[in-house]
Design a binder for these strands. Structure first.
Lengths: 208, 208
DNA sequence: CTCTTAAGAGAACAAAAGTTCGCCAAGGTG
DNA sequence: CACCTTGGCGAACTTTTGTTCTCTTAAGAG
């Protein structure tokens, strides 16, 4: 079910508060944060959030709020990132229950690997690659990039920069590198989303 | 600093309560759980836990307890597991801030990979392999096993069982398989600690 | 033996917090 | 228009909860 603006604001506040403090906020604190003067209004809003499945109210208990979706995690990028702001943190069905600070950064997302073009770097199809959002990548780093032509597509490759040209190298001899000249980059035919900072595999070989 | 039995009991209760409920317990609840009839005693105990660095008390706030070490995570097995109970959950310096249920089980630990004997399975040296504790492993699964001779050592290999013999196969042609006959197994020369259910990599190539 | 400290009991209290009830304005619908 | 639902306000009330104070007991040090 969709969230009204105030409901969304409240839910985001609760999650942020939880991350900062280690326990949920009180009804009053939520009210203050979203600009409600009456606690009963907040309470009703919480009931709505409960009905919509975003949290659970434990009756009678101080700070008795239980968040359903994990407050802290790494969102999995499902579709191709068309828009620019990127990572609206909504729109992600799946969130990995992993504290982002473990990978040394806050702005992260995960990408499910398709294909075996990076097996040489120990990256199997089905693996979840953790990407730190940045446009600045160094030589030799593995980057997530979006190729705009012929149609938008996200790919994971090792980056190689030599005097102006940008090369995306697979880690598998059966595949050819992608080479972009200076003007290709300038025209936005390739765009770096971020650099790989980690990997999470569920199962032995997730593709099977 | 060391914890007294009651302090340890209280801390474990707080952590368990937090995992179950999503928020910390009240002073009274802790008292009930550890058998204290007076709240002030609990409060003093909490102050001690705070002084020892295990939690933080937010003054005046209901359920204002902040746990320092993550309540839910996967312990990293540092040394060789000599004792039998295994996974005392103490003794682990490092705990991965990952919800164990993500890997579909509760009794888990992680093992830091040494050497490149499993690169063929996409497992690099330095990787953290997530192991589900069990002694029953099927053919083809990757297992963590302890070899007792010549001296105790933990290893990660693919399991192969054929009519009584137990083979631990590396996933790298430069290494030879370990073969154990029925009597080797009976004599405890090899013991399966658990099966691999996942992998976590921090960085591009954690060994570097 | 006396003094001190650690660890807990019990009572008392003020502040914090959840919950309910009634009221109201806006917006849609027949 | 009359009616209903949605989403908000305010007041009142009861619990829950944190916190402090004053004992009590047991163990150790000197």
């Amino acid at each position: 079910m969709a969230l009204s603006p105030k409901e969304k604001e409240a839910l985001e506040f609760i999650e942020a508060y939880f991350v900062d403090n280690g326990f949920p906020p009180t009804v009053r604190e939520i009210g203050e944060a979203i600009g409600f003067t009456s606690k009963s209004s907040v309470y009703k809003l919480l009931r709505r959030l409960e009905a919509k499945g975003y949290l659970e109210i434990v009756p009678g208990e101080a700070r008795g709020l239980r968040l359903i979706r994990p407050a802290r995690g790494i969102p999995v990028l499902g579709k191709i990132p068309a828009g620019e702001p990127l990572i609206p943190y909504e729109d992600f069905e799946e969130v990995l229950p992993v504290d982002p600070s473990f990978f040394g950064a806050e702005k992260l997302f995960a990408l499910r690997v398709k294909g075996d073009s990076m097996v040489g770097a120990g990256i199997l199809p089905g693996d979840l690659v953790v990407i730190r959002v940045t446009e600045e990548a160094k030589n030799g780093e593995i980057v997530a990039a979006v190729l705009t032509e012929p149609e938008p597509e996200v790919t994971l490759k090792r980056l190689e920069l030599k005097n102006g040209t940008l090369v995306l190298k697979p880690e598998n001899l059966s595949y050819e590198p992608f080479v972009f000249e200076k003007e290709d980059v300038a025209r936005g035919r390739v765009k770096i989303l971020g650099v790989m900072v980690g990997l999470i595999r569920k199962g032995l070989n997730p593709a099977l």
